[in-house]
């Protein structure tokens, strides 16, 4: 019975970790301009961090061939030729970590030309690690419960 209750508690905790809303960030949104250099097959800088609500302007500078930049989750993109800086402006209104990637075929490793933008915090990573922790703890009551049931079945 205790095992069953602890499993229920762990499950409830899991739901809380997965879905509980986080307090709204207190930092006032601002406008940011980020210059990103693109080459075959990397961005520089390749990891960006902005706050929730920021108006982000990406200046994409291609330094070898035509590259693009597509932001997962925001579904916005821009394309830049060398010598022609292109800008992309969007409001970072969804928190979390998103990949951005080249959307103009630029050579063999093009599908893996990837960067990462973190808006506020990488919530999902923290929630997932929390879930993984609860999951590992949960295995103890779960397996004793299963063993018990098996024993009972055998006894019958």
């Amino acid at each position: 019975m205790i095992r069953f209750i602890s499993l229920v508690v762990l499950f409830a905790a899991g739901l809380a970790v997965a879905f509980a809303p986080l307090p709204a960030p207190s930092i006032a949104p601002q406008a940011r301009t980020l210059r990103i250099d693109a080459r075959q097959f990397a961005y520089s800088p390749s990891e960006l961090k902005v706050n929730l609500g920021d108006t982000v302007t990406v200046q994409l500078v291609s330094t070898d061939v035509v590259h693009g930049l597509y932001v997962d989750g925001y579904d916005v993109s821009v394309e830049a030729d060398p010598g022609q800086t292109a800008t992309l402006t969007f409001v970072a209104d969804r928190s979390g970590s998103f990949r951005f990637r080249c959307n103009v075929t630029c050579g063999a490793m093009h599908p893996f030309m990837i960067g990462k933008i973190t808006v506020e915090k990488n919530d999902l990573l923290f929630r997932s690690v929390g879930l993984a922790t609860l999951a590992v703890i949960g295995v103890f009551p779960l397996s004793s419960l299963l063993v018990e049931r098996k024993d009972r079945a055998l006894a019958k």
Binding site: L124, R127, V136, V139
Partner: peptide, 28 residues
């Protein structure tokens, strides 16, 4: 254009946490 981008990360979390429970149980 990537598809199901909003489902990707939760699906990955589910797979990994599921795999962890599964393996932990095997280890036990």
């Amino acid at each position: 254009r990537p598809i199901f981008t909003s489902l990707l990360a939760p699906a990955q979390t589910l797979a990994l946490v599921g795999g962890l429970i599964w393996s932990a149980r095997m280890a036990q």
